[in-house]
Design a binder for these strands. Structure first.
Lengths: 144, 144
DNA sequence: CTAACTGTACTATTATACCTAGTACAGCTA
DNA sequence: TAGCTGTACTAGGTATAATAGTACAGTTAG
């Protein structure tokens, strides 16, 4: 049983989908800093994917600073790393623009987009693992 | 001289980049409804890409309703089409969530994300072609 | 009508990325 | 020592992107 949820769909690569699923789990505290992350072999068996694909995912997440490796021991979930100004600018320049372009293509209003962002922000804040964390008020999360 | 700007980079496919560039141009009114869209052959020559790739782009944009074809005549920029509820839901569910996950990975705040969305919304609103349109106040655009 | 443009539909080839399969090795720990 | 960990290789199969070239039907300007 893996400590996070993945739904592999067609369209994007297994690699990209798995990286995203783990990012999502960490960012929403389904995986907490210090938690053990499944081994490459466990991942590949549970998800029935190739060990190389699983390892590629781990490598990518380590590069992003979301996982840390203890050689010979295993992989742990890291603290959310400091992000560089460059990374943040890239996101705000490219991904946000793409979202805005898509939104306007679909004739959405600015307010609708902001509402959607807020809604997802709250949802991710609420995704605490049930066994060890208390609920966080939605309003508090948004104003963080 | 093409009526929109494209910068082909490595990473994404030429096809995806070109579709996005045209979407961006239409959504920001650099291309206005009724404008002639370059022919497949013109596109392929100006951008030095294969005619098939150019045609694939046109086909995709026609499917999205952003371009309309007049057989034997050419391709025109369409009115922004009605979007289906399904399309809008897909966007708000998937793309917005991906943006929120990325933003939290980089430790951005909710307010920073909203500010970035607003900034791009205004920028796209201001991108009118200089020869025929008046400036639109940024505040007005955001409240649309 | 003719010529020159338009979009569209094919076949075929090459290059790249993704995924798969299998093997091997070094480090840590019970 | 035995069994786990991450990591590093070599290969092969498949899907997609991009390339090149040819052909055809519809529209329009001359």
């Amino acid at each position: 049983m893996l400590p996070f949820t993945v739904e592999l769909r067609t369209g994007a690569s297994v690699y990209e989908q798995l990286v995203y699923a783990v990012q999502r789990a960490i960012v929403s505290n389904q995986l907490s800093p210090g938690d053990r992350f499944p081994s490459v072999r466990t991942l590949s068996q549970e998800l029935r994917i190739n060990p190389n694909t699983a390892q590629k995912v781990v490598t990518r997440l380590v590069d992003q600073g979301l996982l840390v490796v203890q050689p010979g021991v295993g992989t742990l979930v890291a603290q959310l790393p400091e992000s560089s100004q460059k990374e943040r600018s890239e996101l705000l320049l490219r991904e946000v623009e793409q979202l805005v372009v898509e939104a306007r293509r679909l004739s959405l209003t600015f307010d609708q987009v902001v509402e959607a962002v807020q809604s997802h922000w709250i949802r991710l804040s609420e995704m605490q693992p049930t066994h060890e964390r208390e609920q966080v008020a939605a309003e508090e999360a948004v104003s963080e």
